[in-house]
Design a binder for these strands. Structure first.
Lengths: 214, 214
DNA sequence: TAACAGTGGAACGGATTGTTCCGCTCTGCT
DNA sequence: AGCAGAGCGGAACAATCCGTTCCACTGTTA
């Protein structure tokens, strides 16, 4: 299976191209499960040698950064998709459901601090914040979101869902959906509800992970 | 400051007795923050040498086990206290608030798997389960808890609250209270609510941590 | 068939950490 | 007063883990 030159690659090249995918997928799975897993675990899971990894990424930090950036882009993409939805409340809940399903939170927040971020990531993170605010504003406008909920309550909510984790991934997804349902019910407007306690979560309070830890 | 013999200990003995407390407190603080912190971190935080630790505990595992067991007993004690409360719903919410404030969840579930448990811990864990069930039953009886909530939803709830963590402990407590308020609102009965999705959390699904991991 | 991209995996060096050990201090008792 | 030893600090040790490098090998491409 060889071509003299050009597009459809056979044999070795194809295998290499496929490895690009396999490795990224393995890395995602492994680091989602444990943010400080050894890099060898990724190679093992991908069914490749360590060289195959180092051929593609300068080091562990590089891999983590790319993974995290991908997650961030996914978050932005889902938010943009959601903003196309005409129904304000459905846009809000649909966005959250998709972000929770994709475990974007573990990919972004939980990986932060393990690498030095790029400028572009900073820009994307800012954009993510704006989009989230827009979604929350619309949810407020719909009257279905309780008035004392703020944008940064999303951080709490996503953290809560990401914290649910059992060995089986599919079961994890189900339980997270349940958790999300409870949280959304709790964030819904009801006639005579006690206001949420304490100063609401503020801007910088969840970014502390981004400032290098270990 | 010396006594010929007897009860009020002065000097060295007193210091040692005080260290018992100081060390346990330091261990609690350190391991709550990071379940796999090095044992030296505990000594440093307590302001003592490593010897002071090894004089009291056979090893790291011993310390962790004791810490976890203490947490378990605290859980049981709070549950028993709650069951004395006449108001069913107040008993339920009060229990959760105290358990969340004391961060009992991090002390028990998050430390499990780092040591081999004793039989007594097994018994206490079982008792904890019974008490929790009693509290949930009473909450159901009060009509304030949505009918499709089950005991093991408490596991989800506690996990969600324990997941909230910022550098400042007091602020962490505030944010957890807020999270708890949202979750309790979500678990409250409302006339025409969609049922919670998915198979509800079941008995063995959160005990998986107790079966040794790393 | 010669060069080489792509790879597997052993090997290395540095870092981390649980535990032991030794010497010191200060107490409690005679 | 003086001694035996409880209590302690912290260096030292051994084991482990992990990121990265390196080299031999394989199949492909030209």
């Amino acid at each position: 299976m060889s071509t003299t030159s050009g597009k459809t690659l056979g044999g070795r090249r194809a295998q290499a191209a496929r490895n690009d995918e396999v490795i990224l997928e393995a890395a995602r799975a492994v680091f989602l499960d444990d943010p400080k897993a050894p890099i060898a675990a990724v190679a093992e899971r991908a069914g490749v040698g360590i060289s195959a990894l180092y051929r593609r990424y300068a080091g562990k930090e590089d891999l983590l950064r790319q993974l995290c950036h991908d997650g961030l882009r996914r978050y932005v993409a889902e938010a943009e998709t959601a903003l196309d939805e005409p129904d304000d409340w459905a846009a809000f809940t649909g966005f959250l459901a998709r972000v929770v399903d994709a475990d974007v939170h573990s990919l972004t927040v939980h990986l932060a601090g393990t690498f030095t971020p790029t400028e572009e990531m900073g820009r994307d993170a800012m954009r993510a914040g704006e989009l989230a605010t827009a979604l929350v504003d619309r949810a407020h406008a719909s009257g279905r979101l309780r008035p004392d909920a703020v944008v940064h309550d999303l951080g709490l909510l996503l953290e809560a869902c990401a914290a649910v984790r059992v060995p089986d991934p599919e079961r994890t997804r189900q339980l997270r959906r349940r958790q999300l349902a409870v949280l959304l019910a709790g964030l819904s407007s009801v006639p005579d509800a006690d206001p949420l306690p304490g100063p609401p979560p503020a801007a910088g309070e969840f970014d502390w992970r981004w400032r290098r830890r270990e």
